[in-house]
Structure formats: structure tokens, C-alpha cells
Computed example of a mutant assay.
Amino acid sequence: MMIYFLAILVLLVAGLVVWTRIKAREIEAQYPPIGEMIDVGGYALHAVHVPRPERADLPPLVFIHGASGNLRDQMAPFRPGLEGRAEMLFIDRPGHGWSERGGAENQTPGGQASAIARAMQAKGMTKAIIIGHSFGGAIAASFALDHPQMTAGLVFLAPATHPWPGGVSWYYELASLPLVGPLFAHTLALPAGLTRLESGSACVFAPNPKPDDYVDITAPALVLRPQAFRNNAIDVTGLKPYLSRVSPRYREIKTPTAIVTGDSDSSVLAHIHSEGLARDIEEAELVWIRNLGHKPDHVVTELAIRAIEKVAGLDVDLQAAAAMAEAQLANDHAVCPGEVSLEG
């Protein structure tokens, strides 16, 4: 009896592995690379580079996406609003989207920041405003610490930058483990994740409504491919210990900084991260938005652009812009159909 049970189990696991491989290839065919591969020293990062326009009124801009994302997530809202105003680099973080992972150093925000710096140098970008959303905020902060000469300013959007109480979601912990993690990533993660793409994205946006085409435009399904899923899990589970070591150094950052965050963010605790940045970075401007969730990049894009302009030195009243954004969100009451949180 035990032999039959084991045989059925082996067949089930093998079937899930094959199905995952086939489905991952379908996802890749649906969301192919849309940029170029930039060699950063033995491995390549996938990026979309928008050259400097003749009439640029802003310095170069580099956009860093968050956990479970890829460059499409930042390019969708920001490229249309900033086209013709600045040189821009939208980049898949190491091991995400279509970027190669590189070495073990890329398991930390600091390592990923250095990889992004090399990609900038390869495109002739000597200095830029760094814009980081969520997990990308930790990378933006590390970039400013390790590459201050390349940092023209910082814009944090619902950032994850400080250690927090508790841990992370169980599936991140499971997928990051040796042996068990790869097995989970190659069998159950993709079919389970596909059932949660729409509802999980809705939770990230709540209380603001998720755009109907968000999943199609930003391709979060790419993170469900086995190796990408593992990379994402390793990043997320390693974030808190990394921030415990690095966040005390934020007082070293001496660059114009703006932080845009919502009081209804259920993914990252704004009173820990955003308020922590405002406390730690001298003269950083914190912009609180009532009734805003975890996606200021998509929900209050114009305000985020005003923050970029302010950091670039333009005369912008961010608090007045925030009041206008709040008025537009006052009647948002979208409900999260589950719990999705970087902080568990």
C-alpha cells in the first residue's frame, strides 16, 4: 500500500513540475523582454533606457520596482507622464523580470543597488534621481549610501526601509528554504499564485480600486516562474536583517529627498518606514496621503511626479499637491479580498 501511495505522490509531483514548466514558458511568451540586456560584469540586467530629450527640464531618473514586480510596474505610470522631460532608466532588479540574478551579493538591496549603478554607468548616466517603490525603497536608500556621487536625489514611494515587528508571509519563508524551497517553487507556487494574481493585486491597491488592466499591463505573473519566485522570496526574507544592519546609517544621506506614503497601506507600515526615513534623512519631506494604499506610483502618479520635480529643485508645493490628491481619493472604498503583506 505504501509503495502505491509513494508512486502516486511521485507522479503527482512530476506532473506539477511539467505543468509548471509549460505554464512558465507560456507566461514568458505572453510577457517577453521589452528592453535591452545590459552587461554589468559577468551577468546582464534587463532595462528600458529612454535617452535624454533635447528639451529635458529634469535630471536623469532611475526607477526601481518593488517585491514581486518588474520594470513594467514603474514604466506604465511614469513613462507617459515624463516622456520628453528626462532621460529615464526602468530596470528589472537582479533575478526579477528578465534580469539575470548574478552572484550572492544580489541577495541584498546593497548588492542590487551596485548592479543598478553599473547599469547606469553602461548607459552613460553619471548621476540621477533614484525613485524606489516598496522594496525598491530599500535599494534606493542603499544606493544613496554606497553611491552618493551618483545620487542627485531620492523619491521614496510607500518604501520598505526599516526593520519591523514580526516576519513575512509563510510562502516567502517556505520558498527561501534550501531543498524544500525549490520543490515548492517548481510545483505549487505557480498554480496557487495564478489564482491570486487579481485578488492579490487588489489587496495591494486597497482601499483604492485596482485598474482593470493592471495585471495585463504590468505582468506580475513573471514572478511566479520558479527561479524568479525563489529570488523574490530570498530577497523578502533577507530584507529585515539587512535593514537592521543598514538603516542606522541613513543619517549619512545628504541629498534632496521626498517620501510619498499612504495612511491606509496594509502592505508596509508607513509609520515605521516612511516616518523613519523622514526622521533619519535630514530635511526629507514626508507627504502623507489619507485613504491611499500601497500603490502611490499608480494611484497618485501626478503627485509622485511633483515629488520628482521638487527633488530636482523646481518650485513645487508638495503639501498642496497632496491635498488635491486626497480629495480625489476621498470616496475610495475598495475591499481587499485577502491579506498580502511584505511584513506578514
Results as ranks from 00 to 15, higher is better:
residue 6 L to D: 03
residue 7 A to K: 01
residue 9 L to C: 12
residue 9 L to F: 14
residue 10 V to T: 09
residue 14 A to K: 05
residue 15 G to P: 06
residue 20 T to P: 03
residue 28 E to H: 10
residue 28 E to D: 13
residue 35 G to E: 02
residue 37 M to T: 00
residue 41 G to Q: 06
residue 44 A to V: 00
residue 51 P to V: 11
residue 54 E to Q: 14
residue 56 A to C: 07
residue 60 P to I: 08
residue 61 L to T: 10
residue 62 V to N: 04
residue 68 S to E: 11
residue 69 G to C: 13
residue 71 L to R: 01
residue 74 Q to A: 12
residue 74 Q to P: 06
residue 75 M to V: 02
residue 80 P to M: 05
residue 80 P to R: 07
residue 82 L to S: 07
residue 83 E to G: 08
residue 85 R to V: 11
residue 90 F to M: 01
residue 96 H to M: 14
residue 101 R to V: 04
residue 106 N to C: 09
residue 110 G to E: 08
residue 111 G to E: 04
residue 114 S to A: 12
residue 115 A to D: 07
residue 118 R to F: 07
residue 119 A to D: 01
residue 119 A to T: 01
residue 122 A to N: 04
residue 122 A to S: 14
residue 124 G to Y: 07
residue 125 M to F: 10
residue 129 I to E: 04
residue 133 H to M: 09
residue 135 F to V: 11
residue 139 I to F: 09
residue 144 A to C: 06
residue 149 Q to S: 12
residue 156 F to M: 09
residue 156 F to T: 00
residue 158 A to V: 10
residue 162 H to Q: 13
residue 164 W to C: 00
residue 167 G to Y: 03
residue 172 Y to V: 06
residue 175 A to R: 15
residue 185 A to K: 09
residue 192 A to I: 12
residue 192 A to N: 05
residue 193 G to T: 08
residue 197 L to E: 02
residue 198 E to A: 02
residue 201 S to T: 13
residue 202 A to Y: 00
residue 203 C to F: 06
residue 214 Y to F: 15
residue 216 D to S: 12
residue 218 T to N: 14
residue 218 T to H: 03
residue 221 A to P: 07
residue 223 V to H: 13
residue 234 I to M: 11
residue 241 P to R: 00
residue 246 V to S: 06
residue 248 P to L: 04
residue 251 R to F: 06
residue 254 K to D: 13
residue 257 T to M: 09
residue 262 G to F: 00
residue 264 S to M: 09
residue 270 A to W: 15
residue 273 H to N: 15
residue 274 S to Y: 07
residue 277 L to V: 12
residue 278 A to G: 15
residue 279 R to N: 07
residue 287 V to N: 03
residue 287 V to I: 15
residue 288 W to D: 00
residue 291 N to I: 04
residue 291 N to A: 02
residue 299 V to G: 01
residue 303 L to P: 01
residue 303 L to M: 03
residue 305 I to R: 09
residue 308 I to F: 08
residue 310 K to L: 10
residue 310 K to Q: 13
residue 316 V to C: 05
residue 316 V to D: 01
residue 330 A to E: 09
residue 330 A to H: 02
residue 330 A to P: 00
residue 335 V to P: 00
residue 335 V to Q: 14
residue 335 V to G: 04
residue 336 C to Y: 00
residue 342 L to I: 13
